[in-house]
Computed example of a mutant assay.
Amino acid sequence: MTGLSYSWTEDVLSPLGETGVMIRCGDTISEAVHRRVMSVCALLEKSQPQGILEWLPSFASVTLFYDPLISPYHEICGMLLHELSKMEEATLDEPTTIIIPVCYGGELGPDLEYVATEHGLTPDEVIAIHTSGDYLVHMIGFAPGFPYLGGLSDKIATPRRSTPRLRVEAGTVGIGGKQTGVYPVTTPGGWQCIGRTPLALFRPTENPPSLLAAGDRVRFASISLQEYLEQKEGER
C-alpha cells in the first residue's frame, strides 16, 4: 500500500440534506480519483463507523447517510477526518470485466448514422471504435443499474440530443458527451442511441440487482440482429 497524496481537511466534507455527508475525493473525472473514491468505500466497509447506514460512490465523491440519533453531524465529520487522515490506498480486487453484446444500428440504434456523420466516419468505423474500448464503471445512477462508463474515444464522443426522447428501451447503448452507458430500464433519455444489448442490467429479483458495480470493467462486442433476438429470448 502507498499513502494517498490528498489533503483530507474539513473542506472535503459537506452536509447533504439532514442525514447525509458528501466526501469530496477530487475535482476531476479520472482513474486516479476513481481509485481514491473506491479506497474511501473500502475504508468505510472495513471500519463500519457507528451511526453510518450506507454510502454511495460517484465520479469524484462518496456520499454517506447516517443516523443522527446515534451520531450527530459533527461527530460523524470528526470520525471521518480521523479515519481519512490515516487512510492508505486500498489494495483493490482485480476488477471484474463484463462483456456486453450489442446489436448496433437500425431500429435498435437509430443514432448510429448521426454519430458517424458528426465525426466523418462510417457506421462500421464507429462500431469498431466503440467495441475496441476498455471502459471503467465510475458509478451507478440516474436509473436503477445505469452505468456511467469512462474511457470513450474522443473519435466518437458526441453531445447529448438537443431534445430527449420520451422513451428509450431497456438495453439501449448510448453516447452522452465523453461517456457511454446502457439504459437498464425503459425511460426517457437524451443520449445518442447507437445499439441495444439483450442483457438485463437491472435484475430486481437478484442480489445485487445491478449486473454492474462501480469499479467493474466493460467491453462491448458486436452481434447480429439474429444473435440479439436469440440471446434476448434466452434472457427471459
Score class of each variant (00 low, 15 high):
residue 122 T to N: 10
residue 123 P to H: 06
residue 124 D to C: 04
residue 125 E to K: 11
residue 126 V to P: 09
residue 126 V to T: 07
residue 127 I to Q: 04
residue 127 I to Y: 03
residue 127 I to A: 04
residue 128 A to T: 12
residue 128 A to F: 07
residue 128 A to D: 15
residue 128 A to E: 15
residue 129 I to D: 06
residue 129 I to P: 05
residue 130 H to Y: 06
residue 131 T to G: 03
residue 131 T to C: 12
residue 131 T to H: 02
residue 133 G to W: 01
residue 137 V to C: 09
residue 137 V to S: 04
residue 138 H to E: 00
residue 138 H to G: 01
residue 139 M to G: 01
residue 139 M to V: 02
residue 139 M to N: 01
residue 140 I to C: 05
residue 140 I to F: 07
residue 140 I to W: 03
residue 140 I to T: 00
residue 140 I to N: 01
residue 141 G to T: 06
residue 141 G to C: 07
residue 141 G to F: 08
residue 142 F to M: 11
residue 143 A to Q: 14
residue 144 P to C: 12
residue 144 P to A: 13
residue 145 G to D: 05
residue 145 G to H: 10
residue 146 F to P: 02
residue 148 Y to E: 00
residue 150 G to Y: 03
residue 150 G to F: 03
residue 151 G to Q: 05
residue 151 G to L: 09
residue 151 G to D: 08
residue 152 L to P: 00
residue 153 S to H: 05
residue 154 D to G: 15
residue 154 D to H: 14
residue 156 I to H: 03
residue 156 I to Q: 01
residue 157 A to G: 04
residue 159 P to E: 04
residue 159 P to G: 07
residue 160 R to N: 08
residue 160 R to M: 11
residue 161 R to D: 00
residue 161 R to P: 04
residue 162 S to V: 08
residue 164 P to Q: 07
residue 164 P to F: 14
residue 164 P to H: 12
residue 165 R to G: 05
residue 165 R to A: 10
residue 165 R to K: 13
residue 165 R to S: 12
residue 166 L to F: 11
residue 166 L to S: 15
residue 167 R to W: 10
residue 167 R to L: 13
residue 167 R to D: 11
residue 167 R to T: 13
residue 167 R to Y: 09
residue 168 V to P: 02
residue 168 V to E: 00
residue 168 V to H: 01
residue 168 V to S: 02
residue 169 E to K: 14
residue 169 E to S: 11
residue 169 E to G: 00
residue 169 E to L: 14
residue 169 E to R: 11
residue 170 A to L: 08
residue 170 A to E: 03
residue 170 A to Q: 05
residue 171 G to Y: 08
residue 171 G to K: 04
residue 172 T to Y: 10
residue 172 T to E: 06
residue 172 T to M: 13
residue 173 V to F: 06
residue 175 I to E: 08
residue 175 I to S: 12
residue 175 I to H: 09
residue 176 G to K: 09
residue 176 G to H: 08
residue 176 G to L: 12
residue 176 G to T: 11
